[in-house]
């Protein structure tokens, strides 16, 4: 009995101390959900964008090239991280947006592997040892940014642009026939999704005491992908819930001494989800479908966004 109580107390303190990390992963998962879920593209190198954001922000806060007071430096680092990461998304999207979706997958996979291998060799960002970073942001600030990202995602989904993205996902040819610019839209989606990863990177670099290349290995991309697939591609509530649960999963595994098996768990979870429940844990349900909220909160727009929640044509 005492051991059960102990387990839950340590779980509670783990959850509290992971709050900043949970926030970072929620933003990462939202960014990937935008690309893979809302737009139905397939990026599997999200940790690469995250790394670019984190290292851009860290390079600015650590080297402080303009010698500005710290709040200005922080703001600069966040803006630069979003801009540079968005640009990386643009560079990847340009050659891939005209091609079948699979090429984007391999390009992002290659990108994330190359970014990490370069970081291991770049001396001015500390190579393999990484960088000690100042901790400018609090948990409160991170969650403020999470709230803004959620608002952004929600508003985007029900905007004209969001509906156009959904139309393109459901049928490229039909969407193009009514004047949707496929190439431009796909580039925009990747830039936005990468930009969100850049924000997450800046928040991570400014809240963790140090960052190193090992923290952005390909495993991280798989974790973020699992969050999106577990939550349901395109589902907003599901993906946020999955991001929270899966950020805690490695910590829980560590408590029960199974840390070595975490990637095994993530990969099995991915396979089981796509085979058994491709629409995600919540399926077609969103937060605003709760009976209590339903009377006051009706989004105006396409109501069923989750991929796989629509009948599949054969």
């Amino acid at each position: 009995m005492t051991s059960v109580i102990e387990f839950f107390t340590s779980l509670g303190s783990t959850i509290f101390s992971s709050l900043d990390l949970i926030g970072v992963y929620v933003i990462l998962a939202l960014g990937l959900n935008l690309i893979n879920g809302m737009a139905g593209m397939f990026s599997i190198g999200h940790a690469g964008f995250w790394a670019v954001g984190a290292y851009t922000a860290a390079a600015i806060t650590v080297h402080d090239p303009l010698s500005t007071p710290w709040p200005v430096t922080l703001a600069l680092s966040i803006i630069a991280a979003i801009a540079v990461t968005g640009f990386a998304g643009l560079v990847l999207a340009l050659p891939c947006s005209r091609l079948a979706g699979d090429y984007l997958a391999i390009a992002t996979l290659g990108f994330s592997i190359i970014v990490v291998s370069l970081l291991y060799n770049l001396d001015f960002v500390g190579a393999a040892t990484g960088l000690s970073t100042p901790t400018y942001v609090s948990k409160g600030f991170i969650w403020l940014m999470v709230a803004l990202s959620l608002l952004f995602y929600y508003r985007l989904q029900y905007s004209n642009l969001g509906r156009t993205i959904l139309a393109l996902r459901e049928d490229e040819i039909a969407a193009q026939s009514i004047g949707v610019n496929r190439v431009r839209l796909k580039i925009l989606v990747l830039v936005l999704g990468a930009g969100m990863a850049g924000l997450a990177g800046a928040l991570f670099a400014n809240s963790a005491t140090y960052i190193n290349p090992a923290g952005f290995e390909f495993d991280q991309s798989i974790k973020i992908l699992t969050m999106v697939v577990l939550g349901g591609l395109g589902s907003l509530t599901g993906v946020v819930l999955a991001a929270v649960l899966l950020t805690l999963l490695p910590e829980v595994l560590r408590l029960v001494n199974l840390a070595d098996y975490q990637m095994l768990v993530f990969s099995v979870l991915l396979i089981v989800m796509v085979l058994v429940r491709p629409q995600g844990i919540l399926g077609r349900k969103e937060l605003w479908d709760l009976p209590l909220l339903r009377r006051y909160w009706r989004p105006s727009g396409p109501l069923r966004v989750a991929l796989g929640s629509v009948e599949v044509k054969s």
Binding site: N36, G40, F42, I44, G101, D102, A105, L109, D219, I222, L225, V229, L233, M263, F266, S267, V268, L270, I271, V274, L275, P278, L307, G308, V312
Partner: peptide, 15 residues
């Protein structure tokens, strides 16, 4: 199924 699911399965099998 939509292509994205089998690609996801492939990357998951790899890991």
């Amino acid at each position: 199924q939509p292509k994205i699911f089998v690609l996801t399965a492939a990357i998951a099998v790899s890991v």
